[in-house]
Structures are given as C-alpha cells and as structure tokens.
Design a protein around this nucleic acid. Structure first.
Lengths: 97, 97
DNA sequence: TTGTCAGGCAAGCCGTCACTTGCTTATTGT
DNA sequence: ACAATAAGCAAGTGACGGCTTGCCTGACAA
C-alpha cells in the first residue's frame, strides 16, 4: 500500500539511501552502508540499514533482486510521482463558500 | 529549514488537513476540525489539530493570517514541488538532512 | 463590565520508531 | 569439509511523536 511512502520518506537516513541509489543503482547492503558512512558520515550498524531498506521496499520505493548471496537494491521513483501532485491541483483552491 | 516537509507529511491526519485546505482554502481551526470530523471521521480534540497545524506551518506547507480572533490557514504548495523532483533527476542535488 | 468564542501554552501518557545486540541461515571460496 | 561473507530474524532499549487534559490569553457581543 503506497500510503507508507510518506512514512518511508520521513526519516533522513532513508532519504540518504534514496540519494545513494539515485547516484548509483543496484547496490548491495554493504555497499550502501559503506557509502553512507563515507559520504554522509553515518556510522550505523548493518541491521539498521537493513531495516531502513525493508521500509523502503515495503513502500515500493526500492526494488530488490537476489543474485546468489547478494541482494541488489534498485530505486523505483514511481510512487514519488504521485505524492506531490496530490495537492498541486491549485486551480479551484480559491473557492470560498 | 523546510526539510521538515517530509516529517510533516508523514502523518495521515496532516495529509487530510492538506486535502481539506486544497479543497477550500483559508479555513480556521474550528472549520478544519469540523470538516475532519464529518468528512474523514476523525474525532480529535482541538489541540490535536492545532498541533498538527503548527507542524504544517513550521514546514511552510501552511501559511496563516490573523483576522481578529480568527486565524485562517492557507495551503502553500511551494515545498511540495521540490520533494518529488529530488530523486526524479539523474544528478543528485544532495545536501540537507 | 461580564460572558462567550477562537486560539495558545504546557505537562503528561502512551504507542511507535530507530537502533542495537545476539543468534541463525544461505552462499561462495579454499 | 571448513571458514568467511552477505543477509535475515528476533528481542530489547531509548527517544520521539501524537493526543489528551487543564489552564490561560485575546477578541467580540450583550
């Protein structure tokens, strides 16, 4: 259910993960963890990032594909296109009773 | 610092408030409370909605104008236009937190 | 003035969330 | 087979967020 998109975007760490995947798609968990540490100064545990990725995957913002013992994560921007346009219908906003 | 936009959008009640303001702009606190109760079945206290409006105002998603003892709330969609396009572009405009 | 109405301030309760720690599973290399 | 690597599962903790309750301020009307 794509109402979790807002909840998924609420955390700054998850937004940084999306930034990293937007920069380079198809990263594994350890790659994301390494890049978050070096480029964003976020020294978090592996499980922390794993849980963040689970939230992003539940919100369908990240798609995963398994390959052996690796699990690669791909950014999916489809849910993002809907959320902003929800309130951007500013045509009849000046309707006072 | 309108990176609180994501946090403001995380709550479903606040999204309903934005829906109401998108439908009819310039409502007061009691008007919003009445419409949330009737149209969304949300029977919340006045302070609850007041705190939600404070969060929305801090995120600059809602602008307010005082008029006597009334305080009218107007929807401001400017912060919304940035959040989706953050990941819809190829190059990363990464900063913020 | 007094009473009522719209809104604000502050403390507290309670659930959710982010993160950790520990253990387990599955895949690959030697 | 064994060890190392990539990831998953689960319980526990600390903090933050949403909502309530109670009291207070300011604005209008009789």
């Amino acid at each position: 259910m794509p109402e979790d998109v807002f909840k998924a975007l609420a955390d700054p760490t998850r937004r940084h993960i999306l930034d990293e995947l937007a920069d380079r798609n198809g990263q594994s968990l350890f790659e994301i963890r390494a890049r978050l540490a070096t480029k964003h100064g976020l020294g978090m545990s592996r499980q922390a990032i794993s849980q963040h990725l689970a939230v992003l995957e539940a919100a369908e913002l990240v798609r995963t594909r398994r390959q052996g013992r690796y699990k690669f994560h791909d950014l999916n921007t489809a849910p993002l296109e809907r959320i902003a346009t929800r309130w951007l219908r500013t045509d009849a906003a000046e309707d006072t009773q």
